[in-house]
């Protein structure tokens, strides 16, 4: 039994700001932004919701591509954009509060880009 319908539309980076603007005008709230590393590309989801209707737009970019910030339209987006930058190294252009990589203070730069694991193995000592 499906709990809710979820639509995902893949768009180009150049259309991002226009689409987000439409959501903002339509009275949607920002649910979240998230980045995933799929192969050698980043997949970024922008999720919106209005009256329990969930919609998602997605951009697929290379590691170096700059993403425009949506914090001009959704002020609270800075937490997600800084998180994306600090964990994956996504270049986000024009954030309203740019922490310059210090929002999540990590000892390794961009830890989620090539995650390393400690002490793995079937037995503790290996």
């Amino acid at each position: 039994m499906k709990i809710e319908e979820q639509t995902t539309i893949v768009i180009g980076v150049e259309h991002l700001i226009g689409r987000v603007e439409q959501f903002r005008k339509g009275g949607y709230r920002l649910v979240q932004l998230n980045c995933s590393k799929i192969g050698e590309q980043f997949e970024i989801n922008y999720c919106f919701e209005r009256e329990y209707r969930f919609e998602n737009i997605r951009i697929v970019i290379d590691f170096e591509t700059e993403v425009p910030s949506i914090s001009g339209m959704y002020w609270g987006a800075f937490v997600y954009e800084n998180e994306m930058h600090d964990l994956y190294g996504v270049a986000v252009k024009g954030m309203n509060i740019d922490f310059q990589g210090n929002f999540i203070r990590t000892s390794v730069q961009y830890p989620f880009r090539n995650p390393s694991f400690q002490g793995e193995g079937p037995c503790q000592e290996k």
Partner: peptide
């Protein structure tokens, strides 16, 4: 106010790979 976090970041999300 400028908030910042990261004192207890454990990277649990990446454990899905393992």
């Amino acid at each position: 106010v400028i908030p910042s976090i990261g004192y207890i970041h454990r990277g649990l999300e990446t454990l899905v790979a393992k």
